[in-house]
Each structure stands twice: as structure tokens, then as C-alpha cells.
């Protein structure tokens, strides 16, 4: 199976301090990989490195087999990124935000496709035409997820995707993520939601202070909530 994402002996320094230290992992196409870790473990840094926003001190990252630092544009075109704090424009409605970012990404979507994506994240119909400045954090997160879906990118990088969502919406999101992976999309999500990760991920990596301290593979029967939670508590919590 081809690897959609690959980190090889990756080390990253930020402000002169090591943030990632010699980590390696791969995410095969069509799989969900969850990076679990506490605050400051280096989870978001890993995602930003795949987007080419950070340069590796050593090692490399590849997207669809091509090193990111050699073709950042191609890597970004292949990726839909959902940041931790859903960063959309308050002066626009959900529809306008989606249209704007899709235009920038040269992606096309009809009105019905927009509504379908917003339906899939359960954003209230009445809210869709309102300026997002009035949205709650959860509503902004839902719109951002809808954007990631609509981008139709083969790879999704999700930074704390369920942060701010209510329990029902979290379940809905997990089902959606599974559905997308089943359709062939590759998802790399970073989270500290052990339960959610165990629900949807094919592989889980435990990150602690920039080092990969554990790995679990569903095909090997290694992913169950109790096992992962214990490992997280023992090895990954700060």
C-alpha cells in the first residue's frame, strides 16, 4: 500500500528548542492515523511540518511520496487542513466562507454540495447565511470540517477536530471521518481525545515531548480504549 504521509527521523526546533525529536511514522492511503499526546507534545507541529510551514532540523516529511520541502505547493494542494481553532472569517457567512476558500483552492462545489457538506456536520440551516462572528466555537468547527470535506483533497490533516463539539456532534464527526477514510481519504488527526481516537483510527501514535513513545495498529488488534488509555497515562501524559 502506498504511503500518503511519511515522517522519517523528523526533528524540529522552534525558537532554538527541540519540539520534535527523531520521529518516524507512516500513514498509508485511506487510513486514519491519530497522534495522541498531551499539551506541548508536538502534535500540531507535526501537522504544520506536513504543510511546509516549518522546516525540519533533520529528517524529512513526504506527502504522496514527494518530500514537502521540494514542492510545498503540491503538498498543500493535496491536503485539506483543519486547524485547532477553526479559522474562518467572521465577516462572512458559512456559505461565503466555503465559497471563498474553495475558490482559492480552485475547487468547485454546487449549492447542493455545500448544503450536503454542512448537513453532514449538522450545522443548523438557519445559521448558514449568518455572519460567522455570531457563531459558537462548535459551529465554526463544523463549518471548518465541512470545508475540509468539500476540498475533496485526498489527505486531511485535522488538529483537535472535535474540540468544541458537543457529544452528539463528536459522534457524528467520528462517523464522518470513518466514512471519508472508507472512501479512500487519508486522515492524520492529532488529539488528546483517547476515546475518539480509538473509535476511528486505524493506527495510533503516542507522542510525548517530541518523541514517539508508542504505536498501536488496529489490524494487529492493539487498539482498544483501555489499552491505549493506560499507555497514554503511563507514557504520553506530561
Amino acid at each position: 500500500m502506498n504511503n500518503a504521509l511519511e515522517a522519517n527521523s523528523l526533528s524540529i526546533n522552534r525558537s532554538g528548542k527541540p519540539v520534535l525529536n527523531d520521529i518516524s511514522f507512516t500513514v498509508p492511503a485511506g487510513e486514519i492515523y491519530a497522534l495522541l499526546g498531551g499539551n506541548g507534545a508536538g502534535k500540531s507541529t507535526t501537522l504544520l511540518t506536513f504543510l511546509g510551514f516549518l522546516e525540519a532540523a533533520s529528517g524529512s516529511v513526504s506527502v504522496q511520496g514527494e518530500q514537502v520541502n521540494k514542492n510545498v505547493k503540491k503538498a498543500r494542494e493535496a491536503i485539506a487542513y483543519l486547524p485547532e481553532a477553526a479559522t474562518l472569517y467572521g465577516h462572512m457567512s458559512a456559505y461565503e466562507n466555503l465559497r471563498y476558500f474553495l475558490d482559492l483552492a480552485n475547487a468547485k462545489a454546487s449549492d447542493s454540495e455545500l448544503n450536503e457538506a454542512l448537513d453532514s456536520v449538522a450545522l443548523q440551516t438557519a445559521a448558514r447565511s449568518q455572519h460567522m462572528v455570531t457563531y459558537s466555537k462548535g459551529m465554526r468547527q463544523k463549518t471548518a470540517i465541512a470545508l475540509a470535506i468539500l476540498r475533496d483533497s485526498p489527505i486531511l490533516l485535522l488538529d483537535e477536530p472535535t474540540s468544541g463539539l458537543d457529544p452528539l456532534a463528536i459522534d457524528e464527526f467520528n462517523r464522518l471521518a470513518r466514512k471519508l477514510a472508507d472512501q479512500g481519504r487519508t486522515i492524520l488527526m492529532v488529539t488528546h481525545d483517547v476515546y475518539g481516537a480509538c473509535q476511528v483510527a486505524d493506527r495510533i501514535g503516542l507522542l510525548r515531548r517530541g518523541k514517539l513513545v508508542g504505536a498501536f495498529d488496529r489490524t494487529e488488534g492493539e487498539i482498544d480504549t483501555e489499552t491505549v488509555h493506560r499507555a497514554f497515562a503511563e507514557r504520553a501524559s506530561t
Binding site: 504544520l48 510551514f53 505547493k73 485539506a80 481553532a85 479559522t87 482559492l104 483552492a105 480552485n106
Partner: peptide, 14 residues
């Protein structure tokens, strides 16, 4: 400041 720059750049916009 609002992190929309990250969103813009991640859309492949230079």
C-alpha cells in the same frame, strides 16, 4: 493574528 493566514496558505495559495 486570526490564524486565517494558515488557512489561506494551506489552500495552496502562495
Amino acid at each position: 493574528e486570526s490564524h486565517t493566514l494558515t488557512q489561506l496558505l494551506s489552500q495552496g495559495v502562495s
